[in-house]
């Protein structure tokens, strides 16, 4: 017999060791998320996946599933919170979607549409984040970084390279690369790295292929992010792997 918890009134079965998010996605129920990726250990930093569990709020991607939990996700209170968090992420960086080559393939943008984020909500911080165009094949546009650390995790855990890391604290926190010069060209990154594939926004970009798929025909132009996330779901994380390279993971 498998255990079961409730998500917005539906029965969700789960395996021991799964989090609420993992069980929900596997069972075909979408909970909005950004820093969670089915192939990696949950991180719990963006907080977009926050749900109400027995009346208290928690990040569903890191919350261990337990029998009998009553989880509320698709309620206005939580969607309102998610809208604010997305607005915060937009305000924190420099996101000029019309000129971004990730437009249409960007999870942050797609989530904004899905959650009906129609206004800026906050004063934008306009941080100064210079590009790194030093590498011959790869461009880094830090303006769009939402600090999800997926690239950090992918490079360390899958590629075994530690190309990316975080520097600074608080609002000055930012992504850096592993080179004394601080430039991507002096790292051992390769186009075939996992770290090249995981960025949910438009930071890590292969050069010279930007607009080969026209806007309007891109991933989230076809179907909303909620539908596509479920397609990705069955590729489940190995919950046992412990990773000490990224922030906040036990």
């Amino acid at each position: 017999m498998t255990d079961i918890f409730q998500l917005d009134g539906a029965n969700i079965p789960f395996e021991p060791g799964q989090t609420v998010m993992q069980a929900a996605l596997t069972a075909g129920h979408y909970i909005p998320h950004l820093c969670y990726h089915p192939e990696f250990k949950p991180h719990g930093s963006c907080k977009v996946c926050t749900v109400k569990v027995n009346g208290r709020t928690a990040a569903s991607c890191t919350m261990p599933a337990e029998a009998g939990l009553n989880v509320e996700s698709n309620i206005e209170e939580m969607n309102g919170l998610r809208r604010t968090l997305v607005q915060m992420l937009f305000a924190e960086g420099n996101h000029f979607c019309p000129s971004c080559e990730k437009s249409g393939n960007c999870m942050l943008q797609a989530l904004g549409y899905d959650l009906e984020v129609h206004t800026a909500g906050f004063r934008h911080l306009y941080p100064d984040r210079p590009l790194d165009a030093s590498h011959k094949d790869i461009l880094l546009d830090f303006n769009r970084c939402i600090l999800c650390e997926l690239c950090v995790r992918a490079s360390a855990e899958v590629d075994g390279k530690d190309v990316f890391a975080l520097s600074g604290r608080g609002i000055t926190k930012h992504l850096i690369v592993n080179a004394e010069s601080g430039l991507l060209k002096d790292t051992n990154i390769a186009l075939t790295d996992k770290a090249m594939q995981v960025c949910p926004v438009g930071v890590i970009l292969p050069k010279r292929v930007g607009f080969s798929i026209p806007i309007g025909k891109r991933r989230y132009d076809q179907r909303p992010v909620s539908a596509q996330a479920l397609d990705d779901a069955p590729r489940q994380a190995d919950a046992s792997g412990s990773c000490d390279v990224c922030e906040g993971t036990p």
Partner: peptide, 18 residues
Amino acid sequence: FAHESCGFCTPCRVGTSM
């Protein structure tokens, strides 16, 4: 608080600055 936020999570990192 804004100075001491570790910057890990969105609400505190951005919210304390706001």
